[in-house]
């Protein structure tokens, strides 16, 4: 069976600083994986490279059998490969409802946008309560919800979540964990980046297999700034 996402020998970094030194990874159509490890080991860079915010200098990325290496970010979103960034990086001066509506921007996502909007509000009732609130006035947990909600609005075929529980209280973590479990159960494959290994493992039913394996030649010469 061909993998849904196939990352082969990818090298990438920022300017002169290389962060990924020939990394390979693949994920099947039915599975979800978690990537964990401490800060500065290139997990976020990997997601940014897959979503093409960072251009790889070598290697190839294939999604659903199509080579997407070096394609522009909108083309990758159009293909359904969605990256939810860490929640503090949203549109501060936009309201929740506006943000979610806008998130169904791609052609692919504009079909059935209303239905997905209802699903997002059902998944995160807090967002439904705060529809007209500006994103910058939200708490950390609400921002994470909005970030994941935006990603869901993009109609993902594969969803990459970057540290969805970063800096959250245990109670909120539990809440988000449950929501992520729901998403996984609905049939969307996930790649979840997490520092909190216990959190990942506690959602084993949803997230199985995979780990951040670092071979000797993957070792970055320099660490990214925390």
């Amino acid at each position: 069976m061909t993998p849904l996402l196939d990352v082969k020998d990818v090298q990438a970094g920022y300017g002169d600083m290389r962060v990924l030194h020939g990394l390979s990874l693949h994920i099947g159509a039915e599975e979800s994986i978690g990537l964990f490890g401490p800060n500065g080991h290139g997990k976020t860079t990997l997601l940014k490279t897959i979503s093409s915010l960072v251009r790889p200098t070598a290697g190839s990325i294939t999604f659903d059998g199509i080579d997407i290496t070096g394609r522009k970010p909108p083309a990758i979103v159009e293909a359904g490969l969605i990256h939810a960034p860490q929640g503090n990086t949203l549109f501060g001066n936009m309201r929740i409802a506006e943000t979610l509506e806008l998130a169904a921007f791609s052609k692919r996502a504009s079909n059935g946008a209303q239905k997905r909007l209802d699903e997002v509000y059902a998944l995160f009732p807090r967002l439904a309560e705060r529809k007209t609130q500006l994103a910058k006035t939200l708490s950390g947990g609400e921002r994470q919800m909005l970030s994941i909600g935006c990603a869901l609005m993009c109609a993902p075929r594969l969803l990459m979540l970057d540290e969805p529980t970063l800096g959250l209280s245990p109670r909120l973590k539990e809440e988000l964990g449950a929501a992520i479990g729901e998403i996984s159960k609905s049939g969307v494959p996930l790649i979840v980046v997490e520092q909190d290994i216990e959190f990942l493992l506690s959602h084993r039913p949803a997230i199985s297999g995979g780990a951040w394996r670092r071979r000797a030649r993957d070792r970055p010469r320099e660490r990214a700034r925390p």
Partner: peptide
């Protein structure tokens, strides 16, 4: 119009929802 505002507030996040920056 909204996508223009989104790009102004956060280019990367705008790109990640499919806006051609």
């Amino acid at each position: 119009g909204r996508s223009l505002r989104a790009v102004g507030q956060n280019q990367d996040s705008a790109a990640l929802i499919g806006v051609d920056v």
